[in-house]
Amino acid sequence: MKYNSINSIINPLKFLIPDKIYLRLQFRKHLREKLNLKTPKTFNEKIQWLKLYDRKPEYIKYVDKYSVREYIKETIGEKYLIPLIGVYDNVEDIEWEKLPSKFVLKCTHGSHCNIICTDKSDLDIKDAKKKLETWMKRNWYWYGREWPYKDVKPRIVCEKFMLDESGVELKDYKIFCFNGEPKMIEVDYNRFNGLTKNLYDINWMYIPVSFNRSTEPNKTIEKPKRLDDMLQLASRLAKNYPFVRIDFYSIGTEIYFGEITFYPISGFGNIQPKEFDYKWGSWINLNK
């Protein structure tokens, strides 16, 4: 959902601009291209089309980082959920003294609004509260007109802090599903030292594409031990939708759900080489 400059100060006039016009302006601003909504061809164009015309009510539940847990529990099972420590309606409800030494706080109604605590004794709680209070007042709908976020209730969840086999991070495996079929996996790593993204097909062959971040073709990332299971789970969660990205974490032989995303980079992602913007777009069937 985050894209270049989108979290900068927003002109108040944007609140008066209809979605379609706003998206055309933002598309031109971020991609230097004219947005074609009549006959969209590229991945980014079709993401904008889906924002405007694919408005299933359940999307609101799925983008909510707390409510989606019930959907995951019902659909694939509670064992895939990261253990929950607490959920709070307000920042002042957090009992910091009762939290473990390591934890993760996430706002449920947006993206990139996390407090990752690896040692509570070193945490600046005052600063953490200030960040959370700012995020809780923000409505992410206005930044990219991703309509499901408009009515998500702002809350904070606290989850168990987890690391993968590296011992230093938790790589993010983001599975892109087109009309219910997993087609590729984006692996986000080096989150704390210059986020990098490598793309792979479902057979774990590297795809030479940069998607809004640098990519490392010579970097060896081991295939997750249960990749096939991960793909099957993603397919079950994505089966009814023209496009959706299902995120997982892999820790040894265990799989944990991350989040559901309908609009990666809000449909303003710089895809290079450009031919892949068209290729991925061809995988989204809007006729359904």
Rank of each mutant, 00 (worst) to 15 (best):
M136F: 13
F176C: 15
Y206P: 07
E169K: 09
D201M: 03
Y143T: 06
K137I: 10
K150G: 06
N198R: 05
Y206R: 14
K197P: 01
D229C: 11
D164N: 15
D164E: 15
D228W: 08
L237F: 10
L237R: 06
P148A: 01
Y206N: 10
R226S: 04
S250M: 01
Y189R: 09
I185T: 05
N240M: 06
V209A: 11
M136Q: 04
D188M: 10
G144L: 02
E222W: 04
L237S: 05
R236I: 09
C177N: 10
L233C: 09
K183T: 03
L227V: 03
E186S: 15
I185K: 01
D229T: 03
V152I: 13
I246Q: 01
I156C: 14
Y149D: 01
F262I: 12
D164P: 14
L231E: 12
R191Q: 11
R138N: 05
W140D: 08
Y200P: 01
D188E: 14
I156W: 10
W204D: 05
V244E: 03
F257E: 10
R245E: 06
N193M: 11
R213Y: 01
K153A: 08
M205G: 03
T220W: 04
P208F: 00
L199I: 13
E259F: 07
S250V: 08
L163A: 01
R145T: 04
G180Q: 14
R226A: 13
F178P: 04
G194E: 08
P154F: 12
K150E: 10
T253V: 00
C158P: 02
W140H: 09
G252D: 08
Y256A: 04
F257G: 05
E216F: 00
R155F: 03
R155C: 06
D228E: 14
N139L: 06
K197S: 13
E146T: 07
N218G: 06
F248E: 00
